[in-house]
Design a protein around this nucleic acid. Structure first.
Lengths: 228, 228
DNA sequence: AAAAAACGGTAACGCAAGTTACGAAAAGCG
DNA sequence: CGCTTTTCGTAACTTGCGTTACCGTTTTTT
């Protein structure tokens, strides 16, 4: 199959050779589907077709908000997969919609064959199952982190946690914020003016210093203290 | 083992006969531990002991946030399991605490044996892995739901969503709430008085009616409207 | 059955964060 | 360069929720 190279970059097939992939895909009876720009690849609430892997193009995972507005959850690039969570749950419907932003080619993996018994009980198949376990639990842990953020009552605690994670990631007390104010506010689930106000208060108290996207942690212990 | 019946109700062993279970448990080297009411079964951040299965009693999965406020993530009943997410992650510590709400009996399954290759490649073992996949993705979906709850800004929207889910589950407009006020407040991540106050306001407005744990939805369209 | 503990409704008060609106600095663009 | 657009800080006002405290009721314990 001509898409084999792309398929190999998919985390699901990490540690699998192209030869193994060829064998497996033959077993899977794969169907490549094509979509035009602005066409829906999946529709939230509709019947689940199998785990999708984006082969070419660009697509957006979207969800409808309470207010009925579409929010982009994630952008998909070739090699990315979607629907891996819904695949093994009881309720076999798409938890989100996927919208093609460009012409896209997608392959769907039937979940029953994936988890089901391979007659040959081949090693690659087991590797794939292990990958799947690690992927999904990774996703679950990521969601746990999100819950931790949202469960924080005070805005200051959210900001502090956010800054500390960034500090940990970048390694220096002075660094650039990876997002604009608006995006940070969205991520922390607060309004932008509230974020600005609180950041300025923290600056007044000598905890941090900043200008636009460049920020410096002036009182690290204090910052940690806020998050407990 | 006397708990074999309960173990069979554990979703991890769904579709497995008692005879198969006997064989597998022998291989697993299981230890049953007992806990008193209000005793911690696991402690957040402490060393991971293996996937837990609650055999008897009732327990709450909780997390502490910065302010020391405990939020209930989930309630556990006999046959329920916990810690399956941490089992396949790199960092082998408990991501949450589990607190016994009643005297509890718990069995722990070592994760390496679970995911590792069974020499016999027996069918029950494969069933168990498939079950595990289904369980973890179910948990991920549950967390997604939790995130959706917490992302709601107004308390009224959280209450309405909670009541609508309960209505959907129980099928009648008049039903019993599955938790006490304190637990609901924890679940919705608000204070108990605030929950009471808002529920009374909704009663005053004729949306719902309630006394203690029995509740009746009087204006279903209105309730749905609030969540939109 | 009496005592103790848990549960749930209520009210007053304070404060953190949302809302809205405006202006200045920075960035994008013809 | 000059114009437009985006980004960000700031301030006044509003509001929803937390906190605390109290009390009646229900449940549990002895």
């Amino acid at each position: 199959m001509k898409y084999m190279q792309v398929l190999q970059t998919c985390p699901l097939f990490k540690g699998t050779t192209v030869a193994d992939l060829e064998k497996m895909t033959a077993c899977f009876n794969l169907t490549v589907k094509k979509y035009q720009k602005n066409e829906f690849i999946t529709l939230e609430g509709h019947k689940f077709d199998g785990i999708g892997v984006l082969l070419t193009g660009k697509a957006a995972v979207t969800k409808e908000n309470a207010a009925g507005r579409r929010i982009i959850m994630e952008m998909l690039e070739p090699g990315d997969m979607f629907g891996e969570m819904a695949a093994f749950s009881a309720n076999k419907v798409w938890p989100a919609s996927v919208l093609a932003q460009e012409p896209c080619a997608v392959v769907f993996l039937p979940p029953d064959k994936l988890a089901g018994n391979c007659e040959k009980k081949c090693i690659p198949h087991q590797t794939m199952i292990a990958n799947m376990l690690s992927l999904i639990s990774g996703r679950a842990l990521m969601l746990t982190r999100k819950v931790e953020y949202l469960a924080m009552k005070s805005l200051r605690a959210r900001i502090s946690t956010f800054l500390l994670e960034e500090y940990k990631r970048q390694g220096t007390l002075t660094f650039m914020l990876p997002m604009k104010r608006n995006e940070i506010a969205d991520f922390l689930n607060v309004s932008r003016p509230s974020l600005s106000r609180e950041m300025c208060r923290m600056r007044d108290e000598g905890i941090i210093d900043f200008h636009r996207s460049s920020i410096r942690i002036k009182n690290l212990p204090r910052l940690k203290e806020i998050t407990e």
